[in-house]
């Protein structure tokens, strides 16, 4: 196995994903198989090859700094799972401990 259970649990924490024990088992096996396949890339000598992050030959796309209207607050918050009573804020669970 390319990956261990402990590594999988560590990545799940980085990605903020709650996984069951079964999922950790399956993920360890499946991700290892995919990474083994990906190891084929190491066959290629890429020392002098520049990386491609985007195929579009665009850099520093600029626009005028103009004030334009954005969506009304009511619409922005309409899809929120929880809102303050006055509808003005997103509501989240406590972030700070008492």
């Amino acid at each position: 196995m390319t990956l261990t259970r402990v590594q999988v649990q560590h990545i799940a924490e980085l990605a903020k994903l709650k996984l069951s024990d079964d999922e950790v088992d399956r993920m360890t096996q499946q991700l290892s198989a995919i990474l083994d396949h990906a190891a084929r890339l190491q066959e290629l000598d890429t020392d002098d090859i520049p990386p491609t992050a985007s195929v579009v030959p665009l850099q520093n796309v600029m626009r005028d700094d103009q004030v334009v209207s954005s969506l009304p607050r009511e619409q922005v918050l309409a899809n929120a799972p929880d809102r303050s009573e006055d509808g003005a804020f997103f509501r989240v669970k406590a972030i700070l401990k008492e």
């Binding site: 990956l3 890339l41 090859i49």
Partner: peptide, 24 residues
Amino acid sequence: MLGAYALSAGYYDAYYLKAQKVRT
């Protein structure tokens, strides 16, 4: 999970950067 791993410290060059080079 796969993406987070490919981008994580210690694996970025071997996986993500390598793949970007092969993309070229």
